[in-house]
Simulated scan of single mutants.
Amino acid sequence: MPSYVVVGGSRGIGLALAQQLATSAENTVFVTVRNKSGSTHLNELVAKSTLSNIHVLEADVTDHRALKAAAADVAKVTGGSLDVLIHGAARTEMTNMLRGMTDYEDDDKLDAEFLDSAMNAFLPLLRRGSAKKIVIIGGEGGTSEFVWKMRVSGMAAFGTTKAAEHLVALKYAVLLEPEGFTVVGICPGFVDTSSTAVEKPDDTAMSAIAGFITRLQAISTNLKSFTPEEAAKRFLNLVDSISTKDNGSFIEYIEYKKES
């Protein structure tokens, strides 16, 4: 039975990934969340599931002890192995999503937005798995081409942490290449996650988002807004298709117009 861990699956694309993975009785799905009792959408999914193949684990990605405890719980179910790790945890609260470097009340709050940690807890289990796949949910907002073409100074913490995640994935790809791992970053596309968002955007944020979309339409040839379900399906098809020849790659969604 293929086993998957989705890091950060309480809402949005992570929740949609868990939902689609859990539709197959062959899959064993583990989902990490910061707050198990507060993950209402995920808890509803688990309650409605007739296959009982979703396991919810409480572990903040900044707490290495909690992550190791979560990995131990996975090992109890799988016998000590794991096939695929999908890392999607990110700070995406609407209040801070669009902020630039100088838009925070003070530097302490800016620093807090950058606090995150890479995860080694599941690596021993992955080494004993059959697929040996690690997938980072990436984003074009973390690429220099996107930032420059869009001339976007906002999304400072989000974009910078996504760029860091891309580099972390590449470092792991190099490290684990001799062991037959496939480590990639995959961008899910432009996804409307408002239905499970913690907070709804206010008028100011909606105006900023509208302007953002207008600029994005001007530089891309394939812009489409995906539902979380559509994005998850595309994403998982890519996860299934990647192999060691793709190790170290970043699979983007946006196709940019050629500059005249």
Rank of each mutant, 00 (worst) to 15 (best):
R128G: 01
D106K: 08
C187E: 04
F250D: 04
V6M: 09
F235M: 03
A66N: 05
V184G: 10
K258F: 13
M94V: 15
P201A: 11
H55N: 15
A231H: 02
L82A: 05
Q217A: 14
S130F: 08
T40H: 14
S243L: 03
S10H: 00
E58I: 11
H55A: 05
F146P: 00
T92L: 14
F181A: 04
T221A: 06
F122G: 12
S194G: 07
L17G: 05
D108A: 15
D107P: 02
G138W: 03
A22S: 14
S220C: 12
G211S: 13
G38N: 09
L123V: 11
V183N: 03
L175M: 14
E179M: 13
L176Q: 05
K133H: 00
D203W: 00
S241M: 13
Y172A: 13
A70H: 02
V29L: 12
S24M: 05
I54Q: 04
L42Q: 01
S37T: 13
S144C: 00
R151H: 06
G248V: 13
L85V: 06
N53P: 10
T40N: 15
V135I: 15
K76N: 09
A163K: 07
F181E: 01
Q19Y: 04
G185L: 02
I254K: 00
L167R: 04
T78K: 11
I137W: 02
V29W: 10
L236F: 08
L115T: 00
E165N: 15
E105C: 01
R11K: 12
I213T: 12
H41Y: 14
V168W: 09
I219L: 06
K245L: 00
T161P: 05
E230N: 09
S24Q: 13
A156I: 01
S260L: 15
G12F: 07
A47D: 06
E177P: 08
A112I: 02
S39Q: 01
A208W: 01
E177A: 13
H55W: 00
A131K: 08
V174R: 11
S195T: 12
L85D: 05
S241I: 02
V33K: 02
D203V: 13
P201F: 02
L98M: 15
L67Y: 04
E259V: 12
G38C: 04
S3I: 04
P178G: 01
T227N: 12
T95D: 14
G154F: 00
K109G: 05
D63I: 11
L85Q: 13
E105I: 02
A75H: 03
F158P: 02
A156N: 14
T62A: 15
K224W: 08
G138H: 09
I186P: 00
Y104F: 15
S39M: 07
Y256P: 09
N120E: 09
Q19K: 13
L21T: 03
L115H: 15
A197L: 09
N120S: 10
T50F: 11
V46S: 13
I86P: 14
Y253N: 07
L67D: 07
P2M: 11
L98C: 08
F226R: 06
L223F: 12
D83S: 06
P124F: 14
L125Q: 08
A131V: 07
M101A: 03
D108G: 06
M206E: 15
L236Y: 06
